[in-house]
């Protein structure tokens, strides 16, 4: 469903991605792990073109999104993104945060968008917060709203960029719980994470990235218990 071919990304003198190739199937949950600065987030951000690749190709459902002629906005509608720092819209209520893009971008009616938002907030357990502003939510609640907001666009794939890294430890479980439900429901997901427990339990495949390349990949079992590469072993010995 998502096909990445020989992806390179350079920021001026710094080469962050040095040839990433990977195929991700529909309904697959892929966790990307690796040390900071390894290019995990940049890789994820390239998939919905928040970063424009320096070279290489990305296909989503057979469509070449790295094509200059493609409508980037149209393409982004299909890839929901969840950020480390939530990035909720502070001047909109929780419900408005979720309903805004379906109304403005998908052009569905306000009533229908609000019903959809209502259902999604119920799903993430925050229906009682529908009419408050993000400033009165905890970090975990904000991130669950952010997930609902991305889901409201009914994307084909969900991208998570370290979704629990900015949370207090006791909030992490709620967010991971929502993500687990999503994985069970068959959503295609790419998750950049430091939560090894989550990766082990939920991922179909784990990618270990270091220094701009995918060093090793496999099932959670392959990576966490039988890593072959020295860099993978050394990283895991530090975080597990």
């Amino acid at each position: 469903m998502i096909e990445v071919k020989d992806l390179y990304k350079r920021f001026e003198d710094l080469e962050v991605l040095k040839g990433i190739s990977v195929d991700i199937k529909e309904k697959e949950v892929v966790c990307v792990i690796g040390p900071s600065g390894s290019g995990k987030s940049t890789f994820l951000r390239c998939i919905n073109l928040l970063e424009i690749p320096s070279s290489g190709e990305i296909f989503i459902d057979g469509e070449r999104i790295t094509d200059k002629k493609i409508n980037i906005n149209k393409m982004r509608e299909e890839a929901g993104m969840v950020f480390q720092h939530f990035n909720l819209f502070p001047h909109k209520t929780t419900l408005e945060n979720v309903a805004l893009a379906p109304i403005k971008v998908r052009k569905i009616s306000k009533a229908e968008a609000e019903k959809r938002a209502h259902d999604l907030l119920e799903k993430v357990g925050l229906l009682d917060k529908a009419n408050v502003y993000p400033s009165s939510l905890s970090g975990g609640q904000k991130q669950r709203v952010a997930i609902a907001r991305a889901l409201a666009m009914r994307p084909k794939v969900m991208l998570f960029d370290e979704p629990t890294s900015a949370l207090d430890p006791e909030m992490v479980g709620d967010v991971l719980g929502v993500m687990k439900d999503l994985a069970k429901a068959g959503m295609t997901m790419i998750v950049v994470t430091h939560e090894m427990g989550f990766a082990r339990e939920v991922a179909d495949r784990v990618l270990f990235m270091d220094d701009g390349i995918i060093v090793e990949q496999g099932t959670p079992e392959d990576i966490f218990s039988n890593a072959r590469n020295e860099r993978t072993k050394s990283f895991l010995s530090k975080v597990l």
Binding site: N48, L50, N73, A146
Partner: peptide, 20 residues
């Protein structure tokens, strides 16, 4: 991040400016 979030939801730059 506000612009990025808006763009990631498929909003055009103009729309994100106006709404967000």
């Amino acid at each position: 991040g506000q612009m990025e979030a808006a763009r990631s939801l498929g909003m055009t730059e103009k729309m994100a400016m106006r709404e967000i």
